[in-house]
Structure formats: C-alpha cells, structure tokens
Design a protein around this nucleic acid. Structure first.
Lengths: 250, 250
DNA sequence: ATCTTGATGTCGAAA
DNA sequence: TTTCGACGTCAAGAT
C-alpha cells in the first residue's frame, strides 16, 4: 500500500511520541500526499526574511497546509508566533538526530526553521472542503445599501459612478447633490479615525486638480461614527460626515 | 484519576473517530483542563457579530486555546476562515446528536458556532512554553539605528525627542537640522505608499499650528523606498524622503 | 473603555 | 510583478 493509497483510505493518520526519524518520515509523507499536517512538540523556531526572529524552546503546535503555508502556534494569542504564507516550499528532515521542518520562499527571500527536540504527536489529515465562506456586513454591503437608496446619504443625492478613478486612486462613490455639485464619497464599515479622513482628502484634492473645477466639490465620509480627532480633521478640511452602518438588520 | 491528573500525566491525549458524545466530552474536558484542544472533522460554521458569515459543510481543523481564542482552518490560506479572539467563553456540547462547539464574547457581542457532522480526531495538548519571541528588523530598530547615528538622515541633524505629541498624534522623531530648523520625521520599516505621506503631512500641519511657527518646518519620511504616487504626494506637500532600512546587517 | 498606529500584517483585485 | 486599500484585520501602548 503506497502512501497515497493510505491517504485516501483514511481521513487521519496519527502517530504519538514517535522517534525523530519516524516523525520526519511521517511529516514528509504528509507533505507529499497533500495532507494538512500537524506536529505538536517541544521546539525552537528561527525566522529570517522581511524581519528576523528567534524563539527559544517550548511546546508548540505546527500546522503545514498543502498550499505551502505553515503556522506555529503557542498556547496564547489568536495569531501564530511564526508563520510562512501560502506558496512556500516545505520539507521535513532528520537533522543531527532531531526533526527539522523548514519553509522557504523567494521574492521576498524568507525562511522558517522549526527544530523539535521532542515530538509528541504527528497527524496528517485528508481535507475535503468544497464550501466557500459567505460573509455580510462588509463595505461592499454598505455600498449596495446606498446604491439601493441614495437618499440615505442626503435628499437629492445621485450616484454617478462607483470606484471612479482619480489621480490619487478610486473614489468609492462619485455622484452629485440636488444642486448638481460633485460629491466624492468614502465608505467605511466601522468607526473611523484620522487615516480615513486623510484618504478622503487625497481624493477630493485629486478631483479638484483633475477636473480643474472652480465649483465647490464636496467630500463625504460615510461610516457608523468618527473619533473626535477625525471629526476635527473633517471640519478643518471642509469635509462632511454621514452616519450609516453596513448591517441593515437590528 | 481526575481529569487534571490525567492532563499532568501525559502531554497529549488523542481519540480517533469518536462518537459525538465522546468527542463532546473530550473537548469539554480539554477546555476545563486548560489544554490546547484540536478537533478535525466535517463541520459547518456560523459567525455573527461585527459582521456575519456562514460556511457550509467541509473538513476543517479547529483549535481551541486555553486563553479563550478559537481558530477554524481550512486546507488553504494562512488566515483562519473563522475565529474568535482571546478572552471568549468556550463550550462543547452534544446538540441534536452532533458535537457543537460554541464561543461567545461581549463588547462587541460576537458568537461562533461550529457544528460537526463527523469528528475524525480530538486531541488535547498540555503546553509548557516559557520562551518569548525575540524579533528584529522592526520600526523600533530603525529608530534606534537613527538615534545611534543621526547623521544617517542628514549631516547636522539633531534628534530632540521621540514620540513627541502633537494635536494630530505623536511624531516618531522630532529634531532640528544644522541651521536650527524643526524637523518632523516619520519612520516606516518598509516601502511606503500614499497613506504614510498623509500621516506625515498631518503631523507637520499640526506642528505648524501648535508652534505658531513662521519659520519653515521640515517633514521627513524615512523608509527603504516609496511608491511613485507617494513620491508625487511628497513633492506636492513639500515633504522630504530619506532612504534607510531597519536591518543593518547584509 | 476608546483611540491611535505598527505589523514578517494578510488578502484580493487591478494595472 | 507591483500597487493599493479593505479587513470580523490583530496587538500593543497610551489616555
């Protein structure tokens, strides 16, 4: 029975407290098979690339995905302590008597080395997943909400375009008000700080240059709410704010 | 032997293809013991909170950490498809004959429900990890590099303060040039786009207001490089750029 | 608790 | 490939 057949025959393949050579073999097989491989044990981790990091000995959970990503998790935090993104090259070997898992990529050149001084468990899972995540309550939902009912922004507002290009990037909604004045609308799905105001200001500046427009051009920030500093910045820049939430329900 | 003693006696506790009631018991025990619990199997996932999402049936890897975080991983992507942050309340129960794992929190009110129609494996790991990650190549390293040798920015530059507060936020490095002109320095560890220029501009504007200074005030962006658009914005706003990398080695 | 910004951010889309 | 902005961003420090 080949490794590939074993992979197909069972959904999970797990070894407990393997010797390092056996562990290395199992991990390498799992990678080869396109399985989702997990390793738990005592290890050290070295990373070098965009930044560099070192992590001393401790018990961690390592996950290798068939898309080439790798995640090293401690018992704390939502984020992995070390990782590599999809597309990396992974390998598992016996190095000086220990299991060593490496991941490399180029552009940018980055590598991750995990060395186990003790392996508690190795598992290889066959994954069958055809479903996609359906999400709502995003900025896209906010845009649709406004396009369905433009008066949510202001009586007489008419959307003319979405993602209208300017020399500073694309404006979320481009339209005009009841009196025909141009309005640039920037959407944010949640409470905004000064950064969003800066973004809107860049678009308004760019439109004024692009249009050579003497007529007043309005910039409108649409979000559930703004921070105090953001509100100050809005006023100082002559920009407006409309409160609106992406979630229609509740 | 109590659950706590069993937890102490072994580093990993794994069951394969458990019945749903047994799986629920094992997960609940693991949570109780403060273990890092993993579950692999066919499940659906529902999330509701800041946004909402639904995920149809598929094989996924679920990790519950003793700090209250939960991660649901598919076979693709560095990021979990669904999750909850640390501090959430977790529970595992038998619901209509299936294993159901739930996580809830308040402020904001958010909940995650994972329902397994098939459980392939449940593991509970005892984690012993005293090491902390040591990282280099961050913006903090770039700041130290400059404070060690201010001439890296420009001959005659003198740092006067770091994180100097303005009405628009804190300036990374505040100093003066050879002729005594005030310089506001914004640091970025990697190539920057228009957002960083807007940030620097806010600080320079704020300083001009705060200082009531008629003398020219210089704004300097320090990063490895800038995008074309960012360079345009710099010139238009009379701001300067100095190329510098946080990593001294290589 | 809210605000602000950095991050090995990650991710996706468009040029 | 690079650029750009959204993200249930997360996480940390300050107020």
């Amino acid at each position: 029975m080949t490794a590939s057949e074993r992979h197909r025959a069972t959904r999970a393949d797990t070894v407990v407290d393997p010797e390092p050579d056996r562990a290395a073999e199992r991990v390498a097989d799992g990678i080869e098979e396109g399985a989702l491989v997990t390793v738990f044990g005592r290890c050290t981790v070295e990373y070098d690339g965009r930044a560099s990091s070192t992590l001393g000995p401790g018990d961690r959970h390592v996950m290798l995905k068939p898309d080439g990503s790798i995640l090293v998790h401690t018992d704390e935090g939502q984020q992995p302590v070390n990782w590599q993104p999809p597309g990396c090259t992974q390998d598992a070997e016996l190095a000086d008597g220990d299991l060593r898992i490496r991941s490399r990529r180029s552009t940018p050149d980055e590598r991750l080395d995990v060395r186990f001084e003790q392996v508690t468990q190795v598992s290889a899972f066959a994954v069958d997943d055809a479903s996609e995540l359906a999400i709502s309550g995003t900025e896209e939902d906010l845009r649709e909400r406004i396009l369905d009912d433009p008066e949510l922004l202001e009586a007489g507002f008419t959307p003319l375009a979405t993602e209208r290009q300017t020399s500073a990037g694309a404006v979320d909604i481009y339209g005009e008000d009841h009196s025909g004045r141009t309005v640039a609308v920037e959407l944010k799905r949640k409470r905004v700080g000064p950064d969003a105001v800066g973004q809107l200001r860049r678009y308004v500046d760019a439109l004024e240059r692009d249009l050579h427009d003497d007529a007043e051009l309005r910039g409108m920030l649409v979000a559930p709410s703004v921070t105090d500093r953001a509100r100050e910045l809005l006023e100082r820049n002559g920009l407006e704010f409309v409160s609106l939430t992406p979630k229609t329900s509740e």
